[in-house]
Amino acid sequence: MALKSLGGEEVARRLEAALPGVVERWESSVIWVNPGQIREACLFLRDDPHLDFQFLSSLCAVDWVEHFEVVYHLTSLRKQQSAVVKARVYGRQSPSLPSVYQVWRGADFQEREAWDLMGVRFEGHPNMKRIMLWEGFEGHPLRKDFLQPGANLPHG
C-alpha cells in the first residue's frame, strides 16, 4: 500500500483526450492547464474513473513575479494516487481564474487565502473576501513586491 504519484504524461493524455486544448504543457510530474478552463479540467480530474481525484489536498498560489502560478495538489483516495496541476495567471493588477469551489468545497478557504495573501482572484467563488487580514488592508503580503510598512527587520 503506497501512494502512487501519477506522471504528468498520463494525466495530460487523459485530460487532453477529454478536453482538447486544455493542457498547456506537462513535465514528469506536473501538468500546466489553461487557466480559463481550470474548472472544467478539475471537474474531469475529479470524475474520471481512472483519475478519480476526489480530494483536493492543497491549493496555493506562487508569485513568480512575471506570472502567478496556482498549484493544485490532488489525491485520489480510492486509487491512492496523487498529481500536481498548475495554472499560470498573468498580470499583476488583477490576476484571476475560475474558482474550483464548485468542484471541491475544500478549496473554499484556500482560495480565499490565496486572494487575501497573494491577490489572485477566483471568479465564481461565492464568498471571495479577505480571510486572514481585515477588510481594507492594502496590498497582498505574500507577493514578492509587497513591502511591509516600516519594515526594518534584520532579515527584511
Binding site: M1, A2, L3, Q54, F55, L56, S57, L77, Q80, W104, R105, G106, A107, D108
Partner: peptide
C-alpha cells in the same frame, strides 16, 4: 471528502485514510 477534511474527523466519517499507511 469534498471539503478536503482529513485526520480523525475524516476517519470518524468512515474512511480508513491515514497518510502513515498510504
Amino acid at each position: 471528502i469534498n471539503c478536503s477534511v482529513s485526520g480523525p474527523v475524516l476517519r470518524a466519517s468512515g474512511l480508513a485514510w491515514d497518510w502513515r499507511k498510504v
